[in-house]
Amino acid sequence: MKRIVQNLFSGWFQLYRWFPTERMKAIRDLIAEGERGHAGELCFAVEARYSPFALLAGIHTRARAEQVFSALRVWDTADNSGVLLYLQLAERRVEIIADRGIAAKVPQADWDALCADFAEAMRHGAPDRAVMECLSRINALLTRHFPAAADNPKELPDEPIIL
């Protein structure tokens, strides 16, 4: 019942307050800048809330993030180097999905720590700041574990996605 109330009455009106056009441009620029230093392809997707039908079907954040990862074709890179940062606003949940090329080099514990830190940052501030901090840390992780080669192709768009 709590999830239904959260998704019916929160999230949707906060989306454009927390993520106005200028903030989305800053997120896009942060992704583009970070990708110059690593061979990963980083995507950010934010979803205001789940539909009542999705909630009744039992959707959970991890499963939804995996759906988004697939739908946005984050997996469709030459080196399997896609990473999705997915934020669901109504429930204030975050998931990071790393493709197998990245997952082979970056331990799952690092992703789990990033998600825990993101959740803590959300408790103490606005989601837009938490997203920017998390993206910076993901870029740093990828630069350390998956540095850019001389020919670093741009395989996915940098624009944040609103679902």
Rank of each mutant, 00 (worst) to 15 (best):
L30C: 10
R137Q: 15
A63S: 11
A119E: 15
S51Y: 04
R123Y: 03
V83W: 00
E66C: 08
V68Y: 03
D110V: 10
M132N: 03
W12G: 05
L85S: 02
I162M: 15
N7I: 03
C115G: 02
S51K: 07
K105T: 05
G40A: 12
D151T: 14
V5E: 06
R49C: 15
K154T: 15
N80A: 15
R100V: 08
K154A: 13
R73L: 13
F13D: 11
A54S: 14
D151L: 15
L84M: 10
E35Y: 03
A45W: 06
G37K: 11
A45M: 12
N80Y: 11
A121K: 02
L84N: 03
L142Y: 01
H38C: 13
S10V: 01
I59L: 10
Y50C: 07
A140S: 14
A45V: 15
A116Q: 07
R73Y: 04
A26Y: 00
W75A: 07
T21R: 10
L56W: 15
R92A: 08
C43G: 04
A109C: 01
R3S: 13
A71S: 14
I31Y: 00
L8N: 04
E35D: 05
F146A: 06
C115I: 07
A103H: 07
R64N: 08
A121G: 01
A148M: 06
V74Y: 02
A65N: 03
A39I: 04
C134S: 04
N152M: 09
R3Y: 05
A48I: 02
P107E: 11
E91W: 01
V106R: 00
E66M: 13
D76P: 06
A150M: 06
R129W: 08
G34S: 11
F13I: 04
V83K: 00
M24R: 15
G58Q: 11
A126H: 06
A45T: 12
D110C: 04
G125E: 02
M24F: 02
E155G: 03
P153V: 05
I96N: 01
A57D: 15
E159W: 07
R64I: 11
E155H: 00
I161F: 09
A116S: 09
D99W: 02
G58W: 10
A150L: 10
A63K: 11
E133A: 14
D79R: 13
A113K: 01
C115S: 04
A45F: 05
N80G: 14
E133D: 12
L42F: 07
V74F: 00
P52K: 05
T77H: 01
Q108V: 09
E120C: 09
K105R: 14
G11Q: 03
R49D: 10
F118S: 00
Y50K: 05
F13M: 09
D79T: 06
D29C: 08
Q14S: 12
A116Y: 00
D79H: 09
A98N: 09
E91K: 08
S51F: 10
L72G: 03
H124M: 07
Y50M: 13
M24S: 07
Y86L: 11
R62Q: 12
A57H: 09
E155T: 03
I27F: 04
T77P: 06
R93L: 14
S10G: 05
A98H: 05
F9C: 08
L89M: 10
E95V: 06
K25D: 15
F118W: 03
